[in-house]
Structure formats: C-alpha cells, structure tokens
Amino acid sequence: MPEGSRFEIVSREDFSDATFLLEIRHPMMARAARPGQFVIVMSHEHGERIPLTLADFDRARGTITLVIQAVGKTTREMQQGCRVGDYLYGVVGPMGVPSHVAGVRKAAVVGGGLGVAPIYPQARGLKEQGAYVVGILGFRNRDLIFWEDKFRACCDELIICTDDGSAGIKGLVTEGIRRTMEVHPDLDQVVAIGPPVMMKACAEATRPAKIKTIVSLNPVMVDGTGMCGGCRVTIGQKVKFACVDGPDFDGHEVDFEDLQVRLRRYVEDEKAALERWQGQCRMDHHPN
C-alpha cells in the first residue's frame, strides 16, 4: 500500500517525566514550516491522528522538532515507545495559517505548560524580523524548566514564572504580562499558547489596554485539513475551523467556554483507552 512509515526519529530528549522532545527527519517540512503551524502525527498504523505544534524546525539539518506532553494513551505510548532510529507511521503538515510576525515592533510571547515549546518559533520569528521580544514562560516548578537558553538567545528579556516560586517570579504568566505591560506601555502584540484557561486569562489581562492578543487554539482534531469540522471554534460569534482558519485567533474574540466544553467531549473514551492500555502494559512486560 502506498503509505508512510518513513519519518525517522533522529533525536530525543526528556525534559521531565511527562515532557519529551522528538526531532524528526523531514527536510521538505523543515523548509516549508513557519511559526504557528502544526503537524498531525500517527505513531502507528492503528493509532490516532494527534495534532502537535512545530516547536522548532531546522532547514540545515532537515528536521522538525515536537515537544510532547504525555497526557493520555497516544502521547504516553509515544513516550514509552519512540526511540531514536524508529519511524513514525505518519507525519503530515505543516498545517494551519502561519502566524503574522511581520510589522510587529514590540511583542510579548507567553508560553505556559505544554505551550512553552510551541511559542518558541514565534519568539524566534518575531526576533528575526526585528521586533523587541519579551519572553514569559510559566512552569510549575524549577525542575520542569527547559529551553531557557534557546529562549534567551532570541528574547530581549525573559521572565520565568513558577507556581511555587522555585525559580523566577512566583505566580502565573499573567503576572509576567502585568509587569511587562507596566514597563512597556508600547507593547503592540501578545502571543499566548497554553491550556485554554491560561490563554483566556492572558486575553483578559490585555483586554483593558486593547493590546492585540493572539492565542493558538487546540481543539480536538481528526484530519487537520478542513474536512471534518471537529475542530470548530467560535470566534466573535462566528464558527471557524481551527485547522484551516487558525490555529491562531484573536484572543479577545474567542469563546473559551465553548472550547473548554468541546475539549471534554472524549474525556470518558480517553480515560477508558488509557486504562485499557495501562492494564495491557502491566500484563505485558515487552510493549511493542
């Protein structure tokens, strides 16, 4: 059959017991990718299609980088199973409309939780086109921090926020935004990626000052090509498909309630799948 199985994992790094990085050989995608875009991955033939943001792409090496949080069946299975030299069954992309970085003079890029890695290409893209970039990264504690050096290299200022104050400032990323807005009243764009609650809070933080705030939405997806409508989101009362109209949208227009309700759609199925899989792992000491 004319099918994939040619996407080689060339390196892997584990940032914590839940977060890991995969670098995948795909020279054509490395060339085409732009900040804000994502891919859909199928780890094996019977797998689910899961969307993952392009956390980096390196044209010279011909690779793309994904940073994945193991939250459920598919991502945990990948955490256990993906080794350097293995092949993923399917990787398709880059999907989505690239972020608009052109013309921005001063920006804050905000990443929280699984949004830290995906914000990196935006920070770099903004820097490359001449903007002053403030990076604001949120982690639960200092042990979970990664890519600090990568961000320092492309941010003019970097604010790290931890829930427990073990590194940087104690508090949420919205605290970082508040401080940045104070120091830089001329901020012309904020880009926030993370869990929906965080993006919503960021949009609320900038709403009074009317600072343009872009968020990257992560609804459940199937195809990623505009064909199923599963990824629909409500933006300013209008229905949009995140995979082809987004995933970037104006945070002040997004209906986050809708998004959060829709993200809970498959919670029961997902829990069941995870439990089944964990049961299987316990019984079988040689996964794969």
Binding site: P2, E3, G4, F7, M28, M29, A32, Q37, G90, V91, V92, G93, P94, M95, G224, T225
Partner: peptide, 11 residues
Amino acid sequence: FECNTLVGRLF
C-alpha cells in the same frame, strides 16, 4: 502515491 502530503502547505 505520496500520502501524508498536504499540498498548499508543504509546497
């Protein structure tokens, strides 16, 4: 056949 290829975005 080249599957996993989103034309327009990949090229």
